[in-house]
Simulated assay, not measured.
Amino acid sequence: MKKSVGQILGRTGIRIPLILWSIAVLYPIFWMFLGSFKSNAEIYRNPWGLPETFNWQNFADAWTNYNIDTSVFNSLIVTVVGAALTLVLAIPTAYAIERINFKGSKFLFTLYVSAMMIPMVLGWIPLFFLLMDFGLLDNIFGLAIVYAVSQLPFTIFVLTSFMSTIPKSLEESASMDGMSPYRILWKIITPLSMSGIITVTIMNAIQFWNEYFMALIFLQTEGNYTLALAIDYISSEAQYTNAWGTLFASLVIAIVPVIILYAIFQQRIAKGMTEGAIKG
């Protein structure tokens, strides 16, 4: 009896702070959703209450008057291209580091891991002039390249952990059957590492979708703005035009895809990170 009471008290002591923290995090999001359906007058009159009527005009204004449609398309292009390019560069690199014993492989892996500790802000000025020299400044594809390179260390670190759990006997058997190293990589190693690939792809995609500072530095034309920059523009405009409902609607447009993506793949992400942390 004492043990069961102690367990109940212990679990309650853990759950209460978690519940309070969840409320503190979720309530502003819930308030933002409600605000996206209110008129400006209603936001000022009853900021914490439920909307009298669900007004979809805020979403229409954000989509058309503030070019959210273009910004969503730009963010989608940057996210897809950046995530795909990251995989194209990271998968062969991780395989070479983990499976091919060449001189300096351990040093190269250490170099990539060390790069994760370097603040990205230190490279923004050199990257600005580098993109300018290559004609990729104020270009969403140039931004996608920067995103891909910035996430290479993390992606390689995770994928090497997954590849290390694959038995080498499979590669040896495939090699004896006449498969080249490239076919072994794409036909055997990549499918068996799919859990890790999906995990890093989702995490990278969420990072690229939400990124703000590099987009602010490397994009200059309003037509090339990503969603984060468009929301920042609406935020500055809302101070003078009172377009708070439009701002809330644009925020909802930005976070709903991330919430849906994470809700669908949260178990796979947790499983993938757990499997990647266990080296065979």
Score class of each variant (00 low, 15 high):
182 Y>R: 15
71 S>D: 14
164 S>H: 10
140 I>P: 02
124 W>Q: 13
135 G>N: 08
81 V>Y: 13
169 S>Q: 07
147 Y>D: 04
173 S>V: 09
187 K>E: 14
84 A>E: 14
89 L>N: 12
195 S>M: 04
104 G>Q: 11
87 L>D: 11
184 I>R: 00
190 T>G: 12
126 P>A: 07
101 N>Y: 15
134 F>E: 04
105 S>T: 06
88 V>G: 06
147 Y>L: 08
130 L>T: 05
87 L>T: 04
168 K>F: 11
94 A>I: 02
182 Y>P: 15
157 F>E: 00
96 A>I: 01
193 S>Q: 06
114 S>A: 09
173 S>F: 07
189 I>F: 03
150 S>W: 12
163 M>V: 02
77 I>V: 12
91 I>S: 06
114 S>W: 07
150 S>D: 15
112 Y>N: 07
179 M>Q: 02
79 T>G: 06
161 S>R: 02
96 A>G: 07
79 T>Q: 11
89 L>T: 07
106 K>T: 08
174 A>C: 01
168 K>I: 14
94 A>M: 01
133 D>C: 00
196 G>P: 00
127 L>V: 15
186 W>G: 12
115 A>I: 06
177 D>I: 02
146 V>F: 12
135 G>R: 01
187 K>W: 08
109 F>M: 10
93 T>C: 03
75 S>W: 04
93 T>R: 02
108 L>Y: 15
191 P>T: 08
73 F>V: 15
82 G>F: 03
70 T>N: 11
139 N>M: 13
139 N>T: 08
103 K>L: 14
144 A>P: 11
140 I>L: 03
183 R>M: 01
133 D>M: 01
147 Y>V: 03
197 I>N: 05
75 S>V: 06
148 A>Q: 06
131 L>I: 02
120 M>G: 12
108 L>I: 14
151 Q>F: 12
158 V>F: 00
83 A>T: 10
183 R>S: 05
88 V>E: 14
149 V>W: 11
176 M>F: 04
193 S>A: 12
191 P>L: 13
130 L>Q: 09
157 F>Q: 00
104 G>T: 09
140 I>W: 04
184 I>A: 00
175 S>N: 11
185 L>K: 01
144 A>L: 13
124 W>S: 13
169 S>L: 04
140 I>H: 05
141 F>G: 05
72 V>A: 08
196 G>T: 02
113 V>C: 03
100 I>K: 11
147 Y>Q: 07
137 L>V: 05
88 V>Y: 15
95 Y>A: 06
163 M>C: 01
199 T>D: 02
155 T>L: 01
188 I>G: 09
146 V>W: 08
122 L>R: 03
195 S>H: 01
122 L>I: 10
88 V>K: 13
167 P>S: 11
84 A>P: 06
156 I>N: 05
77 I>T: 10
91 I>H: 03
122 L>V: 13
169 S>P: 07
120 M>F: 10
182 Y>W: 13
105 S>N: 10
80 V>P: 01
196 G>Y: 01
164 S>A: 14
94 A>Q: 03
88 V>N: 13
192 L>Y: 04
98 E>D: 08
109 F>K: 07
130 L>G: 08
184 I>V: 00
195 S>I: 03
177 D>K: 04
115 A>P: 03
90 A>L: 14
159 L>A: 02
